[in-house]
Design a protein around this nucleic acid. Structure first.
Lengths: 221, 221
DNA sequence: GTCTATAAGTGGATAGAC
DNA sequence: GTCTATCCACTTATAGAC
């Protein structure tokens, strides 16, 4: 099992013990939760003794911290950041822009190297305050603010009707957070990872159509 | 702490040991999660020895099962069930009806005897399959179906414009599930229990206004 | 129904040989 | 860096006195 030619999670060039420990930990925690997983299980999976793990990590907690730090770093790396909003709006229109934003959101989750960590985040969010704050700030509050500005711009450019941009941003984005919650918790089972994109993609399309149909400027004319 | 004149959770008439065990367990699990809580802690809180607990419950798991069963029973008891929909619609109008439904939803959560168990449900949903299935079916799928029928009826009676009632029900209700998730997980902290109604009530009002503004029949005439 | 005592196991973590 | 050996705190759970 540990002999398969896998691209390692943390460094491409070498499949060293530290990385194999992290891979095993990610798999175990994503399936059982951090509390229920033990150092012994990791050691068994990797094929070394428990004590050897302490050559790579000071404590059990440090393993989880490393995973979470990696995840946070990996996610902030894919930050859409400075998109040429006006140009994209002119090219694809407001609905197309929303679809692109939603699609980018889905794709940032559905990456093989981090999808198991998403499950870990969903599990540990209630217990680990660093996870909770990261999620609250980076995965909810910041995107809502960004979408609020985006809708404000759309409004200024006459693409959408006048309305409360804050409420609009929440209506748009909270649904996406719900989809995440549904996927990784409510409807989660072991085969979930396969059927990711299709269902969420459909739900999101219906959602965007619903929202856009409401704010579209064509409707009132 | 265990001497306060508290109304017990499971039977009003007597404050016996079994109920005190359940009270302590609910408090501990809601703060730490089931895995991290131990029988010893319950015993310490109640003021008895660990072994005595096994006179009331066969195992640690049975304590959680009892709490969850109580919760499920308590919630199905408050099922709105057969409401005289047409009469209420005529009296309060579609927006008033939605507000009543949303308000009833909030109030069913914000009851002192079950609010800590809501936190337990939020924590254990990833680990306990009974909890997960209950939530998925009773707290998401069934309400969405009920609201779908409700919107269908509103449409037939000419209160709202023609649209996809399934999408509409999801747009309306998923937001409420998100509010739950936000309250009990994302934004949760120890003082959370106090500020429950106001924030969620505001968010819900904005949400209902947004949805209703879209589907209101007045707009297109 | 509660107690003492204890079983029987698991957990994280360390010391020191190699 | 990995191994053997071990520590010890803590866990759920049971047996049997009172």
């Amino acid at each position: 099992m540990q002999n398969e030619p896998v691209t390692t999670l943390f460094q491409q060039e070498e499949l060293n013990t530290k990385e194999r420990i992290l891979d095993a930990a990610i798999d175990l925690i994503s399936r059982k939760g951090f509390d229920a997983m033990s150092i012994r299980e990791i050691a068994r999976e990797v094929g070394i003794r428990e004590s050897s793990i302490y050559n790579h990590f000071k404590s059990k907690d440090e393993i989880l911290d490393t995973i979470i730090d990696y995840f946070i770093m990996e996610l902030s790396r894919s930050d859409l950041g400075e998109m040429p909003m006006d140009a994209l709006l002119a090219q694809y229109g407001p609905e197309g822009f929303m679809n692109m934003g939603g699609r980018a959101y889905l794709e940032s989750i559905n990456r093989p190297r981090v999808i198991k960590i998403w499950r870990i985040i969903s599990i540990e969010i209630y217990r680990n305050d660093k996870v909770r704050k990261f999620f609250k700030t980076t995965m909810v509050e910041t995107p809502v603010k960004v979408w609020e500005q985006t809708f404000r711009r759309m409004m200024d450019l006459g693409y959408i009707v006048e309305c409360d941009t804050r409420v609009l941003a929440q209506e748009f984005f909270y649904y996406l957070v719900y989809l995440l919650f549904d996927y990784f918790v409510i409807s989660f089972n072991d085969t979930t990872y396969c059927t990711f994109t299709e269902k969420m993609s459909d739900d999101m399309s219906g959602h965007i159509k619903f929202i856009f149909d409401k704010i579209s400027v064509k409707k009132v004319q």
